[in-house]
Design a protein around this nucleic acid. Structure first.
Length: 903
RNA sequence: GCGGGUGUGGCGGAAUGGUAGACGCCGGGGACUUAAAAUCCCCUGAUCUUUGAUCGUGCUGGUUCGAGUCCAGUCACCCGCACCA
């Protein structure tokens, strides 16, 4: 335990707690004592608490504050419970925004990133997080990405890295590859040009080698949210299906794969992808086919776009022979069939697949029912959509009457027996493409040699560092056009060769950062023994938006490193928690010109083309204080004294209690439209800057707000009233603590009970991450202690409260702790003990119901017998009035809970 | 389009199938004050014939002595969909 020798005389002793001096004082005290520096050699049990590290965008936002406050409470609580806690912080520092800033502002991505990191670190420190800053790093540090390059080479040598062609979004005007988010409505975000699909040779990681293991591992992740495990399971998408071939009328054959062989009798067409060999062959001497294929190449590459795009088909006039019925099916080239999935060709079963249904409807192809709810309904028509559900097979020869599952097996067995097809397990999961044609990322450490092919850069030459002298005046990859960087000698033959100019997906950086936090030797990525001391992460906290990609990639990367013997853990995160977003109302207005009418129509709810004129407003620009009583005349000036007169619009007023609030622009008095409560985002300007709030209310009030009210997995709506309430509570606790008297005498049994029940409940709530419930209990105990007369019990309650508040409001807790005469830090204090005898009440309230409806409540001793409770209930006047003389048919007694009389 | 989730007072929410609305915010009334701020006390789901009752957890049904909770369907919103992080 650290003796900080705090001089109690420096502690503010006036009426109010003053965060502006206290926050910094305690932040310095923790830093000087090294309170939160994790000791790998400690004999204590270890706990690794981690929140998803931030992208250094420039400013910390409320979402970060919420995320890190939750982790911080856990870290501080676990220290109080006697754990040696590792709670590190770093920066996910590579990525596109730095390059965008470079293009827009002419700054270097590295300089911009470093500056952002410095700013954001200072912001985090002002909130008083219990972080071990000695382990901080950024993924753009060559020391970090150099080790990443070494690991990438290791995986390459283990056969887990390969190259293949794959499709990217290509902007034909900017001559550059676009990220999915840079494609808006199928057009490039800068150029506005229609995006094309283009093939490039790219690097891949063999995540599919681990598909089964990643899937099975989910079963053991009991402390992960069920929904995340389900999402990952569906994403991996293991399915049993049939691969078989159609013989074509032109002599070729087309292999197809289907997960629904049970519906094979319902097939009414065959469709191939635009870049399928059959389509390509036709295009050679048919320009109609060629132009159709070119049309299919337009548009973006995302699943959502592909699946919502209009279904387009081209009838090749080739026919395919159905292997069971012998029927001739038309063969189409279709834009919704993808070469990357399965075999690049499908059998179309319109009755039982929505995409096929849409396609068949458009091209007037037959739609046959082969699955029905009941054999008698074999010829029911379709209600305008496909039926993908379960049922009984009909109109299907030897399959009739079977269940879907049995029919799948029966078709596979028959196909294998007759030799025209084979059962196959396939995965929806695809290998992970890690190539990015960008500058600001980890260079892929390979050299292309005309003689030796692709050769890894020898470990001794790592890191391959990024050149600093680059410019972003023109689009495209600066590494590609750098005058010297890409010229290197082949490590094998020594001849002139070329460096790989692709960089790694930033998801690679975040797939092993937690290992580097646990151990950071200079000469290796990590030390396996040190890693084993801390891993797996005991609590991993971050946004639900990472439910699939980041978490699956990190699970894969950890397995891959275990596979090549680098570490012993396979599963990186023992428990996962996904927190909700911080949201805020959106404020907007339409300037007086060009159209006042548009405002009024909008305010009346008649939506117009407002978006053309709509201006979003920062919450600080909006006046929410101009109000009047319902029967008062309209306001003539806003709260800043600006005349509003004709600008006042009755439709824009919001009723709150007896008042009508007129939201308006502070500076001009223009009426403001208060929109929906959505995630804080720069584009909607509904952001609240944590710094301004901390400056005004102190770190503890902000932390308290982040934990209060909303369950942590749900969205938290920011409100000024809410933060003010939190700020008041900080002062209220301070006043209560000021009333502390170490020498008070006397016992208050019921307060003792409340104190011990609260200690136990708050501990349980924190362990279950139910921070909002822990907060409510602290409010209750605070209220009870305020109302109680001075006594030893009351002093004990106040002492307990200081401990309970310590993980949540650490600055206030330290201040009070010092005022109480302690010379140690409460951050080092143990969590208070609970007396089990005080956890149970001796009296309980029993609900008395008649036919399940509450009629009365009574107080009874805990553990009273069923007979006694029944007798007490029947004695109730209210109950007897409700029964009104009817015969009692049944009495249900739930001990210590209720009695229900059934008549 | 596909996969996953959420829905309870004016607002955020609480509630092992067992008293719906704990706790907080907002609002109202009062105390203290020359006044204000701060603080403290009381009230605060709706309706009605108000010592009491009826209704009420997105919507429609079902199971149960009893449903916010379980089941079926439905609507709305949110997250993800492989190059945003």
């Amino acid at each position: 335990m650290t003796d900080t020798r705090i001089d109690p005389s420096v502690v503010d002793d006036r009426g109010r707690f003053d965060p502006s001096t206290a926050d910094g004082r305690w932040q310095r005290a923790w830093a000087e004592a090294g309170t939160f520096t994790a000791d790998s050699d400690s004999a204590k049990p270890k706990s690794y608490i981690l929140e998803m590290f931030p992208y250094p965008s420039g400013r910390i936002h409320m979402g970060h504050v919420r995320n890190y406050t939750m982790g911080d409470v856990l870290a501080r609580y676990q220290r109080m419970q006697g754990f040696e806690v590792l709670h590190p912080m770093g920066w996910d520092a590579f990525g596109m925004p730095a390059e965008n800033a470079a293009m827009e502002k002419g700054v270097h991505p590295g300089g911009w990133t470093r500056q952002n990191i410095a700013q954001m670190k200072a912001q985090l420190q002002r909130i008083g997080f219990a972080l071990d800053w000695t382990r901080e790093f950024a993924t753009c540090d060559p020391e970090y990405y150099g080790h990443e390059q070494a690991l990438f080479v290791d995986l390459y040598e283990a056969g887990l890295v390969y190259r293949k062609e794959s499709t990217v979004n290509w902007d034909p005007v900017d001559m550059t590859v676009l990220a999915n988010e840079q494609v808006i409505d199928g057009k490039g975000w800068r150029s506005g040009a229609e995006v094309e699909k283009r093939k490039l040779n790219q690097w891949f990681l063999k995540i599919t080698d681990f598909a089964d293991d990643l899937l099975e591992g989910l079963d053991n992740l009991e402390d992960w949210p069920e929904k995340v495990r389900l999402m990952q399971e569906n994403w991996i998408g293991k399915s049993q299906g049939l691969e078989f071939s159609f013989d074509l009328s032109n002599g070729d054959c087309v292999p197809v794969y289907t997960t629904r062989p049970d519906t094979i009798f319902g097939a009414s067409f065959v469709a191939v992808a635009a870049d399928h060999p059959v389509a390509q062959a036709l295009a050679m001497n048919n320009c109609e086919v060629a132009s159709f294929i070119a049309r299919c190449k337009k548009g973006g590459t995302t699943a959502a776009e592909l699946e919502t795009a209009e279904k387009l088909g081209f009838d090749t006039e080739i026919s395919a022979r159905h292997p069971l019925t012998g029927a001739d099916l038309p063969v189409y080239i279709a834009n919704f069939v993808l070469m990357d999935y399965g075999t690049g060709a499908i059998m179309g079963v319109p009755g039982h697949d929505q995409r096929d249904f849409d396609f068949a409807t458009k091209y007037a192809l037959p739609i046959t029912r082969v699955v029905a709810s009941d054999p008698a309904r074999a010829d029911d028509p379709f209600a305008g959509e496909a039926e993908a559900g379960d049922g009984v097979i009909v109109n299907s020869g030897f399959l009739n009457g079977m269940s879907v599952d049995d029919a799948i097996q029966a078709v596979i067995t028959r196909a294998e027996g007759e030799g025209w097809g084979t059962g196959r397990t396939v995965w929806r999961l695809r290998d992970w493409g890690v190539s990015r044609q960008r500058y600001w990322g980890t260079p892929i450490p390979f050299i292309h040699c005309d003689a030796c092919g692709v050769v890894p850069v020898p470990k001794a030459q790592l890191p391959v560092t990024l050149p600093d002298d680059v410019n972003f005046d023109i689009p495209g990859n600066p590494l590609e056009r750098h005058p010297t960087w890409k010229h290197a000698d082949c490590p094998q033959c020594g001849k002139a060769a070329r460096r790989e100019t692709d960089t790694l997906d930033t998801f690679v950086d975040s797939s092993w950062y937690f290992l580097r936090f646990a151990s950071q030797p200079a000469d290796r990525p990590f030390d396996p023994e040190e890693v084993a001391k801390w891993m797996p992460v005991q609590h991993y906290i971050g946004g639900i938006e990472h439910a699939i990609l980041h978490l699956l990639y990190a699970r894969f990367w950890t397995r891959a490193l275990a596979h090549i013997g680098k570490i012993t853990v396979k599963e990186p995160f023992a428990a996962l928690f996904t927190q909700g977003m911080v949201t805020h109302e959106v404020y907007s207005y339409v300037p007086e010109n060009p159209s006042q009418i548009a405002v009024e129509e909008e305010l009346k709810g008649n939506v117009t083309h407002r978006h053309v004129f709509e201006q979003f407003l920062d919450p600080s620009q909006v006046d929410m204080n101009t109000k009047r009583r319902v029967n008062d005349p309209p306001p003539t000036a806003n709260s800043a004294g600006v005349a509003i007169g004709h600008k006042w619009a009755p439709q824009s007023e919001i009723q709150v209690g007896e008042f009508l609030i007129f939201p308006n622009v502070l500076e001009t008095g223009e009426p403001v439209k208060v929109g929906r409560v959505i995630k804080m985002s720069k584009s909607k300007k509904n952001v609240v800057d944590p710094d301004a709030i901390i400056a005004r209310h102190g770190a503890d009030a902000v932390r308290w707000f982040m934990l209060s009210d909303s369950p942590p997995e749900r969205d938290l709506p920011w409100s000024d009233a809410g933060i003010e309430g939190c700020s008041r509570f900080v002062q209220r606790l301070w006043r209560l603590f000021s009333a502390y008297d170490a020498n008070a005498a006397g016992e208050d049994k019921s307060l003792d009970r409340k104190t011990h029940q609260t200690i136990a409940a708050v501990a349980a709530d924190i362990e279950a991450l139910g921070f909002n419930k822990a907060v409510a209990r602290i409010y209750e105990l605070t209220g009870a202690a305020e109302k109680a007369a001075p006594s030893a019990s009351r002093s004990a309650a106040i002492r307990a409260l200081v401990h309970l508040a310590a993980p949540m409001m650490p600055h206030l807790a330290e201040e009070v702790w010092a005022k109480m005469g302690n010379t140690t830090l409460i951050a080092d204090a143990p969590w208070p003990d609970v007396d089990p005898a005080l956890l149970v009440d001796d009296e309980v309230t029993i609900a008395i119901q008649h036919m399940g409806k509450l009629r009365d409540t009574i107080t009874a001793p805990k553990g009273a017998s069923k007979d006694a409770l029944e007798a007490l209930a029947l004695a109730s006047v209210n109950l007897q009035r409700s029964i009104d003389g009817a015969a009692v048919r049944k009495v249900i007694v739930v001990p210590d809970r209720l009695v229900n009389i059934v008549t």
